[in-house]
Each structure stands twice: as structure tokens, then as C-alpha cells.
Simulated assay, not measured.
Amino acid sequence: MALVRWQPFREIDSMQREMNRIFDSLVPASEGIFNGNTFAPAVELDENDDAVLLKLELPGLNPDDLDIQVTADAVSIAGERKYEKTTEEKGMTRSEFRYGTFQRVIPLPARVKNTESVADYKDGILHLTLPKAEEEKSKVFKLSLTPASESA
């Protein structure tokens, strides 16, 4: 019987690589997780009586690099975070930032007046105010109840 030397750090490294592979395959890129050179920004959607309010996290992006298109029932946002190359003579530079293009289409919970939409970009957060269409504001659905039939 041969003796085999146990190397726990090699096994831990192997287990970590396998766990990373599993998590990368389970989480889709559309949920704000990075995937290759593309990413999908995190979104927060809120609705009140007059408008649909949409916020997107877009830190480090120049507003000129964003393409925002609003239809009556969806918002499409595309953009690019451009790579900024930095070099350092002494030492090492490490970056975990993701660069590249993204596109996200967000369906809206109500029809909006896309021509009256307003966008504001401040501190890396894009705020969209999308006024609801008049027919959505006044839409009332009356539900009528019918008596249940008597059981025997």
C-alpha cells in the first residue's frame, strides 16, 4: 500500500473553482450579475397614481454613452462603459470593474405617455419619470359577484 501525501490547500482551491463554475452557470446576466464583457444594471421600479418611476444604477457612465428609448409599454436602455487604461510603473494594477456594452428592456406595469417622459442622471443613478396615459389613470374595473348556487 502506497502512502499519498494529503495537500489540503490544493483540494480547497479545486473546490473553490468548482463552486465558482456552479454559481456562474446558475445566475443569469439579466439579474445585474456580470457575464463576460457585458453587464445588466440593477433596476428599481415604482408606480404611483400618476406615473411609473424607474431608477437604474449606472455608476461611472457618461450620459452621452446612454441610449434611452421609451415606448408606451416598455423602456429600452443601452450603453457602454468604456475601458480606461491606467498603468503603474511600480507595483501592480488590479481592476474588478466591468467594461463593455449593455442593453436592458424593462416592461412597464402600465401604459405611459412616452413623449412626456423625463430623464435625470445624477450620482450614477438614472431616474426616469414616465407619466401614465390618461386611459390608465381613469381605468376602473368593476367586478360583479354572482351568488353561488345552492348545493344539495
Score class of each variant (00 low, 15 high):
residue 99 Y to R: 11
residue 77 I to E: 05
residue 113 K to H: 02
residue 67 D to N: 10
residue 96 E to K: 14
residue 45 L to D: 02
residue 59 P to A: 02
residue 108 L to K: 01
residue 124 G to E: 14
residue 93 T to E: 03
residue 145 L to P: 05
residue 105 V to F: 01
residue 134 E to S: 10
residue 81 R to K: 03
residue 144 S to E: 13
residue 36 G to S: 05
residue 25 S to F: 10
residue 96 E to V: 15
residue 41 P to V: 10
residue 76 S to E: 14
residue 23 F to N: 04
residue 41 P to A: 09
residue 150 E to S: 15
residue 146 T to H: 01
residue 79 G to M: 02
residue 36 G to D: 09
residue 49 D to H: 00
residue 42 A to N: 03
residue 40 A to Y: 07
residue 140 V to C: 05
residue 111 R to V: 07
residue 43 V to Q: 05
residue 81 R to D: 11
residue 60 G to K: 07
residue 42 A to L: 05
residue 134 E to I: 00
residue 27 V to Q: 13
residue 140 V to L: 13
residue 140 V to F: 07
residue 135 E to H: 03
residue 74 A to Y: 03
residue 79 G to I: 01
residue 83 Y to Q: 11
residue 85 K to T: 10
residue 129 T to G: 00
residue 79 G to Q: 09
residue 70 V to R: 11
residue 120 D to E: 12
residue 93 T to F: 01
residue 87 T to N: 06
residue 54 L to K: 02
residue 28 P to Y: 10
residue 82 K to Y: 02
residue 111 R to P: 09
residue 92 M to N: 03
residue 92 M to Q: 03
residue 44 E to S: 14
residue 43 V to C: 04
residue 94 R to F: 11
residue 136 E to Y: 06
residue 50 D to G: 09
residue 105 V to K: 06
residue 114 N to A: 12
residue 62 N to S: 06
